[in-house]
């Protein structure tokens, strides 16, 4: 058991960034040797493919912290490794590790697909898209339809919205929804503040293209609505 624990810690420690000694101190991984070997293989495989290993290591660390059953930690690490591969394929082989890690994180949000990552990358082929991808994932997790979230973020990236503006949009929608507002109402209102930016785009109808579903018509009632 001691060997298994030591091996697990070694796996995590080998790929941990500098200054992560505190993390090792608090690890309480209790998997057996077989699990540790499996995790080691997954990490080696990810590294051999030139993919960032941090998202896989993160699953191991979190699983250890939560005392998650070893089989589930292995499954989570395998899932992260698979998503990293998909993210790189969608974003391009030359993408920065941070972009690939962001893509992996987004793909774990229910509804986000590789095509959405491709769409965002198409709007910004050279610079980092970690923040746009994060905002897209955040909008989806907040309740915005995935395709709509990807389209909105892509158009904003094309309109040269900066990272601050993108994050502000995601945070504002999330804050509205957390306080009880309808997703669509919040999105309509928050996008309104970005319309001047979109109006500067060369294609003049870009702002209009950001229209969302209109509000349902009010049910017919007595004009004053009260007896």
């Amino acid at each position: 058991m001691r060997r298994a624990l030591a091996l697990a810690l070694a796996i995590v420690g080998a790929f941990a960034p500098a200054g992560a000694a505190r993390a090792q101190d608090s690890l309480a991984y209790s998997g057996d040797r077989e699990t540790a070997v499996q995790l080691s293989r997954i990490v080696d495989d990810v590294k051999a493919k030139g993919l960032p290993v941090e998202p896989v290591i993160a699953k191991v660390r979190l699983g250890a912290l939560y005392r998650t059953p070893p089989a589930r930690i292995v499954a989570a690490a395998q899932a992260a490794a698979a998503r990293l591969q998909v993210a790189r394929e969608a974003l391009g082989a030359s993408s920065a590790p941070a972009d690939i890690a962001a893509g992996e994180s987004a793909l774990s949000v229910n509804g986000v697909t590789r095509d959405m990552l491709r769409l965002i990358r198409s709007a910004e082929p050279t610079r980092s898209v970690a923040v746009p991808i994060g905002v897209m994932a955040q909008l989806v997790a907040t309740g915005v339809k995935p395709e709509q979230a990807a389209e909105i973020v892509t158009r904003l990236v094309r309109a040269r919205a900066n990272n601050g503006q993108l994050v502000a949009l995601g945070n504002a929608v999330n804050q509205d929804v957390a306080a009880g507002a309808a997703v669509m109402s919040s999105l309509e209102t928050r996008l309104e503040t970005l319309r001047p930016l979109l109006a500067r785009m060369p294609s003049s109808n870009a702002a209009d293209a950001l229209t969302l579903s209109p509000a349902p018509a009010s049910p017919p009632t007595n004009p004053k609505g009260r007896p």
């Binding site: 989570a76 229910n110 955040q138």
Partner: peptide, 14 residues
């Protein structure tokens, strides 16, 4: 979803 039967919060840093 954190892949470990739990959930975490998602935040984007600009």
């Amino acid at each position: 979803d954190d892949d470990l039967a739990g959930s975490v919060g998602l935040i984007t840093i600009p």
